[in-house]
């Protein structure tokens, strides 16, 4: 229902001002190809700057690609970007346009601008506000809300005036677990009742594993893998992740620990190791005995997550969130 082929988008170089260095041209999308199927929750996973938002901004008609094609529900959105607004609902990262409105008015106005009549807009406004549990704060302005509440209010504006495709750019940023559950319940309801499709941008690994049907892993403007979360994790299934946190410094005088050092990615007092299961077992035995154990503050042994997949595929580690 949503097909992207060879999408390329380069941001031109910025001419440097006096005293400032020239910013080079950035190829934010470098030949992206993917297919989103009807009724699925499709994720775009990658760290900040990977090119996810650039991709969805082209999908929503906000940005024109340099080359490539985008087809949504049979409509060519590169040729007719204005049709995007009539096919999909988009939750961007900014709420500037709505900040000074009350939650109720923001939702109602958006419904009116999505083509609903006055009565319909009011009825849908009340339904959406009830569904997301926003009733208590419906009369407050978005600016006065906490980050998570504001995000939820913006999400409500995406739901009013039903659309077959929802494009959500990091919808749950700053939300507490209750609000997150409300978001995923609302998404599931639209999928079950209307067959709605969701394209979701996230850099949260745990969220990606729990809610996505399929995920495209994006790094430096390219899709480096695309599969179900389970399918992706099978790629690294023979490995486990061992995290060690040292009290003070690693006890390198212990030969087993010194041997592990080359394989570890150190970040402060924390070592992260990806090892085959049998090696991990012996490593655990080594660190839980004698002088190594005395120097150990904490350790965890875990099956691989999407973050491990991402690293195994050659992605940069920084920027993915595990919360």
């Amino acid at each position: 229902m949503c097909a992207v082929r060879d999408l390329v988008k380069t941001y031109p170089a910025m001419r440097g001002r006096r005293g400032a260095a020239q910013a080079p041209a950035v190829r934010a999308n470098d030949g992206i190809t993917l297919d989103v199927r009807r009724g699925e929750i499709f994720g775009l996973l990658g760290p900040n700057g990977a090119g996810k938002s650039t991709l969805v901004r082209q999908l929503t008609g906000l940005l024109r690609p340099d080359s490539g094609t985008i087809s949504v529900l049979g409509h060519d959105l590169v040729r007719y970007p204005e049709r995007a607004a009539r096919l999909l609902g988009y939750l961007g990262q900014e709420s500037t346009a709505l900040d000074e409105l009350t939650v109720a008015l923001a939702v109602e106005t958006t419904g009116r601008l999505r083509g609903l009549g006055a009565h319909e807009a009011r009825a849908e406004r009340d339904a959406v506000i009830g569904e997301l549990g926003l009733g208590d704060i419906a009369g407050r302005t978005l600016k006065k809300l906490s980050g998570g509440q504001r995000r939820l209010a913006c999400f409500a504006t995406v739901l009013i005036g039903a659309r077959p495709l929802l494009v959500l750019d990091e919808p749950t940023t700053g939300m507490d677990p209750v609000a997150r559950r409300a978001v995923w319940a609302a998404v599931d309801r639209r999928r079950a009742e209307h067959g709605a499709t969701v394209v979701l941008v996230t850099h949260n690994v745990l969220e990606a594993e729990s809610v996505l049907d399929r995920v495209a892993v994006i790094d430096r403007g390219r899709v480096i893998a695309c599969d179900t979360p389970g399918g992706l994790k099978d790629m690294v299934s023979e490995e486990v992740r061992l995290e060690l946190v040292w009290r003070d410094r690693p006890p390198l005088e212990v030969p087993e620990i010194a041997a592990l050092e080359s394989a570890a990615r150190a970040s402060g007092r924390r070592w992260t190791l990806r090892l085959p299961a049998d090696q991990a077992r012996s490593a655990v035995a080594a660190v839980t005995a004698g002088p190594a154990f005395a120097a150990l503050d904490d350790f965890t042994l875990a099956t691989p997550s999407l973050e491990d997949v991402y690293l195994a595929l050659g992605g940069r580690a920084e920027g993915l969130v595990k919360a």
Partner: peptide, 21 residues
């Protein structure tokens, strides 16, 4: 100016609303 700089125009641009409105 503020709406444009802050990305606020995206909200209107992704709704099927005539620019004149």
């Amino acid at each position: 100016g503020q709406l444009r700089a802050g990305g606020g125009l995206d909200h209107y641009a992704t709704l099927p609303v005539p620019p004149a409105a």
